[in-house]
Structures are given as C-alpha cells and as structure tokens.
C-alpha cells in the first residue's frame, strides 16, 4: 500500500532552540502507528505541524502528494485529537459532536451518540465541566466518528482508568477493522499499546531515532538471565545496554539480534534467554 503521509526533512525551531531537526519519515495507508518519545522529544510539535497549527521552519509535509500547510483539502482528511483542550468553553458535549458533524464530511453522528452511551458520557454537560477522563472520551468519540483517512491521537487514554482504557482499546480496534485507515497514536504508555500498534516511530530530542514494525523491533535485542559470573562470561564482547542484579542473579539486555549459536552458548552456561519488552528497549534507546 502507498504512503498517506510523508514528512520530508522537516525542522521546527523556536528562536534558537530546535524542537524538531530534519525529520524524514513516512506513514502508510491503513496502519496503526505508535509515536513514541520522552517528554519534550517533539511528538506534539510534529502532530501540530501536520495539522496546520504552525508552519515548519524547513521541509515539507505531504498528504497524498499535497502539502498540508494551509491546504483545506488535505486538512479535511485529517482528524486530530489534541491533548490540550481546543474547544469553545461554553459548548456542551452534544454541541461539540454537532459541530464536528457540521465541519467533517461523513461524520457519523449516530455512531458518536452510541459511543457516548457506551462510555456513559453525559452529552448535556458542558465540556469544560467534565473530568479529565470524560474530556478524553469526548475527544476519542469525535476522532473515531469521522472517516478521515488519517487520525492523530495525542495521549488518548489520559485520565482513563484501567477498565475504561480496556474498553477504549477494544472499541478502537473494532473501529479500525470497520474503517481501516491510518492512526498515529502518541503516548507514554508504551507497553499498553505495544500489542496494538503495528509500527513504532521513536523520536528523541527532536530527531527521528527509529521507525520499525514492533515485531522487528523486539528482535533487535534480548535479555539474558542467570548466575552473575556466567552472565558476565556471556556478556564479553557483546553490546550490553543494561544490566540488573538481584543478589547473585543478573539480567542483562543485549542490543543485538539473538542467533541460534547464542542460544547454545547461553544454554551451556545455564542461562535463560527471554525477549526484551518494548518499554525497556525504548528506555535504553532514549536513555541519557
């Protein structure tokens, strides 16, 4: 499938500080992406550039083959669930849903009202009086009810408890199955989305660090655990990015793909090989 979004050499600077530096990345149609990065890495800046909030200092962002900047056609195909509140203060939830219906072509108002009911969201309430969790739910409902081919979500589960998060992920996947399109989910809860996203895009200090399918990313490293002196023997000459010791039991994370021979070596030293978690890999990759 083709690319829906291409980010070509995009930088954004504020005065002298660079929020994004020479980002080159593209997103395919019909995939769920995770946009991962530490606080202040530039995730939200990138989403803001895609959605016409401000202009990139250099480079261009293309939706299809058209630049997104000040382009009504491109912008009508993107839906952005911001983390911050951008809605008029006085609007009720119902008014917000109706305004989305007025401005987005093919906004499914019936589906939106149905979701509101499923999440027990009181649509008569003013948006500004909602709790953090219900604010997120309102924004989620709007994003899922459009049929924009590109949907961006910034911290979608902010303020949601575990049960509601679970419900959200199920409704989200059901929605994705019904209307496959490109989702870019920016989040800190990496382990929680690691099964849901197909590819991860990691940004660190304004630069693109990595873009890979999650499955492949998890093959990039592995953990070895066992008796500490045996682990040390195994570690010799390998790229160890992290080690942890409890008593005489040591676990190390190696940033190399595991081979058949590694398996044999580990077995001979009475060591156990376990896959690395995305969250841990992320911490190593973006660590100081």
């Amino acid at each position: 499938m083709g690319n829906i979004l291409e980010i070509n050499n995009v930088s954004k600077t504020y005065g002298k500080t660079a929020a994004l530096e020479a980002i080159n990345v593209s997103f395919e149609e019909g995939k769920i992406y995770g946009l991962l990065g530490r606080n202040g890495a530039g995730k939200t800046t990138l989403l803001n550039l895609i959605t016409n909030k401000f202009e990139a200092t250099t480079g261009e962002i293309l939706l299809g083959k058209e630049s997104v900047w000040e382009n009504p056609n491109a912008q009508s195909k993107i839906c952005y669930m911001t983390e911050k509140n951008m809605f008029p203060k006085e609007f009720t939830v119902l008014q917000l849903l109706k305004s989305s219906f007025d401005f987005y072509e093919n906004f499914d108002l019936e589906y939106a009202l149905n979701l509101a009911e499923q999440f027990k969201l009181n649509i008569g309430k003013k948006f500004k009086t909602l709790s953090k969790g219900f604010e997120s739910i309102t924004k989620i409902i709007i994003a899922l009810s459009t049929d924009c081919p590109l949907v961006l979500m910034d911290e979608p589960v902010l303020g949601l408890d575990a049960a509601v998060r679970d419900k959200f992920y199920r409704i989200f996947l059901d929605n994705f199955a019904r209307k496959p399109r490109t989702f870019i989910i920016s989040t800190h809860l990496i382990e929680e989305v690691s099964g849901i996203i197909e590819e991860a895009v990691i940004i660190d200090s304004g630069r693109l660090l990595l873009k890979k399918p999650v499955e492949e990313m998890l093959q990039m490293g592995y953990c070895v655990a066992g008796k500490s002196n045996n682990v040390d023997k195994y570690a010799e000459g390998r790229k160890v990015v992290h080690s942890e010791m409890v008593g005489n039991f040591k676990t190390i994370t190696i940033y190399e793909p595991v081979s058949q021979r590694d398996n044999q070596t580990a077995a001979s030293l009475d060591l156990e090989i376990v896959p690395v978690q995305l969250q841990k890999l992320f911490v190593h990759l973006t660590g100081d």
Binding site: I32, D166, R170, L173, A177, G195, I196, E198, V214, E215
Partner: peptide, 17 residues
C-alpha cells in the same frame, strides 16, 4: 482476525500473521 484483534486487544495485522 478482526474478532481476534478486538478480543485480545492486538493489532489485526498481528492476528493475520
């Protein structure tokens, strides 16, 4: 694969794989 994706909260591409 859709049913599996929703039930196990996994990406449909993973289920399809």
């Amino acid at each position: 694969t859709t049913q599996m994706s929703v039930s196990y909260r996994i990406n449909p591409a993973t289920a399809a794989k």
